[in-house]
Design a protein around this nucleic acid. Sequence first.
DNA 1: GTCAAAAGTTAGATATGACAAACTTTATTT
DNA 2: AAATAAAGTTTGTCATATCTAACTTTTGAC
Lengths: 168, 168
Amino acid sequence: MQTENKKVSDSLEDYLETILELEKSNKVARAKDIAEKRGVLRGSVTGALKALARKGLINYEPYSYITLTDKGAVIAKEIARRHEVIRNFLQNILLISADEAESNACRMEHAMNRTAIDRLVQFIDYISNCPRTDNEWLDGFTRFFSKKSPKEKDCAACLNISIKDYLK
Amino acid sequence: MQTENKKVSDSLEDYLETILELEKSNKVARAKDIAEKRGVLRGSVTGALKALARKGLINYEPYSYITLTDKGAVIAKEIARRHEVIRNFLQNILLISADEAESNACRMEHAMNRTAIDRLVQFIDYISNCPRTDNEWLDGFTRFFSKKSPKEKDCAACLNISIKDYLK
DNA sequence: GTCAAAAGTTAGATATGACAAACTTTATTT
DNA sequence: AAATAAAGTTTGTCATATCTAACTTTTGAC
């Protein structure tokens, strides 16, 4: 099977991600479920499946169910990882609503490359582990963008809370 | 002039952004310069210009130079703002190289909506103003992802530096 | 086992966006 | 002002991605 190695389009990346999700929930993916999840018609799915099969990313024969090849699974998991990292950042650090975080992540996952995602992971990790950026700090961000308290309070006192917490 | 109000595609958004940049540097945009900046052929630009004119986003007559309409300028500036916010975040907070920050921002600017961008602006603002997340903290992030010092030092001492700085 | 429904495929249409190459208009050189 | 170069346009082609509607295969109810 001669596989095409050209870049996978955003659309095909989405199909791979959807197939991975269906494999997880249903063992196997069917065209109808892919169409439903992606919000396209069944007819559109067939073309995408042919393209993915040509590239060696899915196991597919007409009228069969669909599974990811090893190569396809690598890409699907990478996209799913990006999605989750971005969603988590938007929702838990930027404190954006779940819906908005989800829809932005869906688009951003195709726009950020590995370098950017990996560094974002480290950034989230750093924020989560550095005592400076603890819950006090995140709560401060909520106040900051809610403008509930336009003037900031005593920052030294705030910092001291974290020192005490850390020393405990 | 009957203008189409459908959503502006990523590609057309890029054209608007490019035209804005050329207006800034050259007063006016010409097809050849747009083609160069966007890395497409001159022939491709003509089609895009027609589409933008149909939507009432640029002033354009065949063989003329190009300027943004008020409506086009609003969109162009919004895209340029997104680009700059994202680039700044990637480069100055995530500490990604200028090149990588730029190329990621180019793609992400189409993927993030206003809600996400506005909150990111506030986040950058908060980081820049909270004494907890000062230069000490950013330096710590560099060490963190460089793994130059796998074990963290005394966090209480580190926090104290910021308190002293803040009280000065 | 038959047959209808569900799932899947095919074919033709539309829309976008880019390319190449020929062609036209505008600008520049002399 | 004519010739030439540069800029802009047109036309035809290609690739992607979707839809609609007709058609085929598979599945499940009976």
